[in-house]
Write a protein that binds this DNA or RNA. Structure first.
Lengths: 343, 343
DNA sequence: TTGAAAGCGGTACCAC
DNA sequence: GTGGTACCGCTTTCAA
């Protein structure tokens, strides 16, 4: 029952340990006959090299550490799926942690895994980390020679590989799309104004309006705290009822669903006289009624890209310190919540 | 730059390796003064023991392997969160794989991780594995002394710890609840008739009817293939329109959402003259319009329970082979899609 | 109170 | 072609 070791094989076959090792690694030094004999015995007894010993020797673990702020978020789950796919293709294992948006947990995790448990990290910043603006733990990690790839919520000033979405262009395009449909009173609802991502989306909104010479109206911009998710509807009600609005762009699905509900309750018809577009490509959009038009984010591709970048870096002979940022394009996926304004 | 080792400390302080090791482990053999000196130096230079070396020595990795069929499924994400929470509390790391419902990937993962990468597994069966009815890989694993905890989709005949939900009672209660609201024509829609879980839910439906002396009508039972998720609505339309139905119980959220849509389209009002109840406690239920009444599954608790069971087993002195099955109760969470039948 | 050395399971260099 | 052995970083027994 006990795991078979190279030593056991050596004893059983009356050869030396090194012979067994070499035979199993198909070394040219060993004769075909002994190789065959050893391989046969190994296979029959289901020999599996002990990865821990290998790691200790090679100083490589072939595992990637992943830190995700919130696994219940569909976007992150998609990214995770993308990472997992590439990693397992390339023979890497994944150790994953959920930071739960906690800075402390993030720091702890990094420390805990930087001790030979992993070869590199893929992560997205915890909310708290962004608010505290404290990135020391990343700097230390990189200094220690452990590469990091950040995705989506990235730290501007940390020099590491990054994968982000083209949020800015995403909103610009959305604004233009709505404008073409006849919308002039386009509102913008953000649940992530404190994040860079949120800022980029907001700036895209402004740029879109500007390009179209639509005057900016600050009353049509609403920032909500994500923690208030239970109050989305009550916060949105006065916003939608007291302003002249014919369409809303939101930075996330939940608030979009809430906006749809409020608009319907306020007597609007969707999409006849009120349109809703939301960032993110979660399940809610596909299951809402009517189905939601979204700025879709391609989480899986982001994850896969991040994994490829990291593994490339890990397997390069001389580890270059050059870092790059890849931008994954969003797509405007038109569903049922937008259409030309019936006027 | 390089990681500090016990040897470096020994050299620097002119003591032996074993002294350093003992000092850092607070052994009684070492004098307070040397201990102090060593600890100080270690702390200042941020010494961290190499976990790989520790694992090799102790034959424990303090990591748990998790195999999840589908990470985009909210229920599994919840379970994952629950596992992660307990694991990190108890100092365990998590290596996770997504089987994508593939038997091959599941087998491969088990093999790949059974080589000293992990101390035990927590997993839920892949669809394919259930269909093939092939559980050899689990048996081997257990024989090799690696404990497994299965949750939700478990293998009846494998002797290991398990965590499941009381699906049977869940449906019984739901049927009774609907009956009390005045419903006599309760339909049952399953997207998992081939799974044990699905069977238990179906049997609960039958039992509920029987207890209430409501005659069973086979026309009110619909089995859909999960892969047909894009066709849910078109499959449900004739079912709902050609039968006398005043309420539906579904085994999952997606089909419940589809059922709601079809019912609305067919002229029913929800919940005035048509009720919908769904298993699972995902986001869809909370965001649908109207919000859905659910048989809520407590994924996080299941995950946490599984993690506790596994860690207990791992840390017990003499590993008992006794196995247990824990049943996590479901809750009927009443939202807006059910209420007394008007009339 | 401290240190030498074996061993965990491999790899790889060097002798033979 | 095969075998001896040092080493990866740490723990632990035993001797000093």
């Amino acid at each position: 029952m006990k795991k078979l070791t190279i030593k056991d094989i050596a004893n059983h076959l009356n050869v030396s340990i090194s012979t067994v090792s070499k035979a199993l690694n198909d070394s040219y030094e060993i004769s075909e006959t002994t190789k065959e004999k050893i391989r046969k015995y190994a296979k029959e007894n289901n020999y599996q090299p002990n990865v821990t010993a290998l790691s200790l020797k090679s100083k490589k673990t072939k595992t990637i550490g992943i830190i995700i702020p919130n696994m219940l978020n569909y976007f992150f789950a998609q990214v995770f799926k993308g990472i997992e796919k590439i990693a397992s293709q390339k023979g890497y294992k994944i150790i994953s942690c959920i930071s739960n948006e906690s800075h402390e947990k993030e720091v702890e995790t990094i420390r805990m895994l930087s001790n030979g448990s992993i070869d590199g990290f893929i992560l997205s910043l915890a909310d708290e980390t962004i608010i505290k603006n404290d990135f020391k733990h990343f700097e230390e990690t990189i200094e220690n020679g452990i590469p990091i790839v950040m995705f989506d919520r990235v730290a501007q000033n940390i020099d590491c590989d990054k994968v982000i979405t083209n949020d800015f262009e995403g909103t610009v395009n959305t604004v233009k799309h709505l404008y073409r449909l006849g919308h002039k009173n386009i509102a913008f609802v953000s649940t992530m104004s404190h994040l860079k991502v949120g800022e980029r989306r907001y700036l895209g909104y402004l740029k879109g309006l500007e390009d179209l010479h639509v005057p900016f109206n600050k009353n049509l911009v609403l920032n909500i705290e994500e923690e208030d998710y239970k109050k989305y509807e009550s916060i949105l009600t006065p916003f939608i009822e007291n302003n002249t609005i014919d369409s809303v762009i939101t930075t996330d699905e939940s608030s979009a669903v809430a906006a749809m509900k409020v608009a319907l309750k306020s007597g609007y018809k969707i999409p006849e006289d009120f349109s809703v577009v939301s960032f993110s490509n979660g399940i809610l959009a596909r299951h809402s009624n009517p189905k939601m038009t979204t700025v879709s984010q391609h989480g899986e591709i982001m994850g896969a890209t991040a994994a490829e970048m990291l593994i490339n870096k890990l397997e390069k002979k001389q580890p270059s310190t050059k870092t790059q940022t890849k931008i994954i394009k969003t797509d405007l996926v038109i569903r049922e919540s937008t259409r030309p304004l019936s006027k």
